[in-house]
Design a binder for these strands. Structure first.
Lengths: 212, 212, 212, 212
DNA sequence: TATGAATGAGTATTCATTCAT
DNA sequence: GATGAATGAATACTCATTCAT
């Protein structure tokens, strides 16, 4: 087994364990048993337990950010409606999160009482989500698609909470299924957008509520 | 100091510590130092650390439930509009949560990897919130105030996430202030309701909100 | 309740508990619960846990010693045969022990790892038994009822072990009955004596028991 | 130091300590100080304190049982007299017990108030001794070497008590010497047998009392 | 590089004893 | 005398990390 594969195996097993047992209840012993490696080997790839956890969340965070910017780049803002844009964002995020329930479980839970660095890494995920949403809202206001009198801060918190909780509900919680089809996720995204459309977007003349 | 006062003191200090340090990073040593009592004293009032935590969350849960039912009883459903009802609910919850940031912090974080019983207690809070919201939505559908074609499950998850996160944002997170005036909280509640009103409630003239 | 009654109640309950749970597994909490008194009250009558235990064993020891000397005084050594004397001793001891299984249980178990003073008290019981038996044997040798070539030390150990274990077997162990009739105990004593008679006492005709 | 050696060292030190201090007064701290190892090392070889204790007694028990069966196998029952057989048994047991005073001390004390499992392990030793003796007696009755009218139960209790107490007296108690020569132990065994010979065995016509 | 035995600081919990009421 | 809340030293066990092989 090559070095990279070994590191990958540790991360994979650790992800699964962190996701189900949480940070404190996942012990190095569990990880090495799952990954079938020796205790010392873990410390050849990671300086300590925290670093394993942080690496996992960071990787997830980076993938997610890349996904967002990559996808964003492909959207022609001129041709898409504000609602269409929102739907696109929500849908992409949900698809991304649906792919890895374990990571979703780790990232969507606000870590309370974790070691400082670990805590920061996790919170970064939520903060970034909220910032991004706030940015989108402000952009919408500039373009006059979003009402000026909307409270961006509150609305961003609302959308963030709504989005992450919905993802958690479907991909992590009791309701969780093994896999979701593209159609099923689109349905969730549509339901989501439907709730917010009228509250967030300026109803210019006529704006059909059907998904773009 | 009387027995009840002492128990109260332990709970008070423990609440503060659990809120800031989390379950695992709050040690009995910390609690007794904070409460200025002997180690053994803790075990006169609680059988173990879990019980302290559970007592805190349970008490909070009960207060919160009482508040809800008490307040609910005072509302005349005949004279209040659906939107007014939502606003009332949101406002009451926010007021309640704003009063105790520590408890809010504990209750609003989904515990991952906590001891079974502890975990259950915390989750109960969220579940109850979602159930209550779902119930309200279904009642709204019966009364034809909420569109039939709304997905109650998704919408309940959305509203729960939105509400708890908003509370967390203002009462626990960085944005946190010491105290909020009634007016400030009303403002947050209004912003909250504004976002959802159009998506959830049937517009008087046309009831045309259909997803896809 | 008078002071003496209270002290007696503590001793009674403690005896029962020490007998079933042992020294370390009997806690002051158990005693006060059983005796239905307050924690502090115990310390008005005894300086500490050890003293309770020691008092119990001492009392038992004294009763037992008194019984022996009292009974001894009533025997006319001139008229009783050596075997009759042995039978009498064994029988009295068995009757005495059969009366209180709890005390029997405490006294017959060699305490290992008990606090120094406690340990001494218990051992005193066994030592005394052995000394007494050795004394009887030596007296028998003087009177030419017991062979000279018998090893008093070994034989005393043998008889002590045999006697205490027999008592333990019938009054404490699994074989334990609630109560034994005088007849039943006499049967045990007879069986006991029968085993030893020929080995210990000089047969009238030939005194030929020599080891090796 | 190899793994097995380390485990052995722990057992050796623990045996010594359990023997002198008893179960409750032997602390893990004492064991690691004696064995000059780290606290955690103990738990690499044993799951808890009980297991150390149980391992010690079990090992002793197994050795003892093996010794008995092994030796038994070598005796030709056809050529040995009943008394010779008894003497052989007693002698082997005494030799075995004389070899390790610490183990002897642990095994020969009836544990009162020890943790359930620990208690069972210790009692097993005594029970087995008594069963074995009872078996021998019954076999003797079949072969008409032992009188039919003997009470096997009582006699087994007597012999067990006598044997274990004798061993305790010479190998553990105050009388204890460092080492005993084969001759000295034979002397004890002969004294032991001498006491019981006439009480237990059927005096056919003439039966010389000299050791077989 | 891989291993896994060894480490020891850290933690919850117990329980005999005290002492103010 | 009686009470029982308060005390805190003591103890078994954990587990991330190290390091010799």
């Amino acid at each position: 087994m090559k070095a990279d594969e070994r590191k990958e195996a540790i991360l994979k097993c650790a992800t699964k364990l962190f996701s189900t047992q949480g940070y404190y209840q996942t012990h190095i012993s569990d990880i090495i048993k799952e990954a079938q490696i020796a205790r010392g080997t873990v410390y050849q790839y990671f300086t300590n337990k925290d670093e394993i956890f942080i690496t996992i969340v960071d990787t997830f965070f980076d993938k997610w950010r890349d996904m967002i910017s990559f996808e964003s780049a492909r959207i022609d803002l001129a041709t898409i409606s504000p609602k269409g844009y929102l739907r696109y964002r929500i849908l992409q995020t949900l698809i991304f999160l649906s792919k890895d329930a374990d990571l979703c479980n780790i990232a969507l839970r606000i870590g309370l009482g974790l070691p400082e660095k670990v805590s920061q890494t996790i919170n970064r995920f939520e903060q970034k989500t909220m910032e991004m949403i706030a940015e989108d809202l402000r952009f919408g206001q500039q373009e006059h698609n979003v009402p000026d009198n909307i409270n961006v801060e509150t609305t961003a918190a609302i959308l963030t909470g709504a989005l992450l909780r919905t993802a958690h509900h479907y991909f992590v919680g009791k309701r969780r299924q093994r896999g979701y089809s593209q159609k099923e996720i689109e349905k969730i995204a549509d339901d989501f957008v439907a709730v917010f459309t009228h509250g967030i977007f300026v109803p210019r003349d006529k704006m059909s509520i059907s998904a773009a």
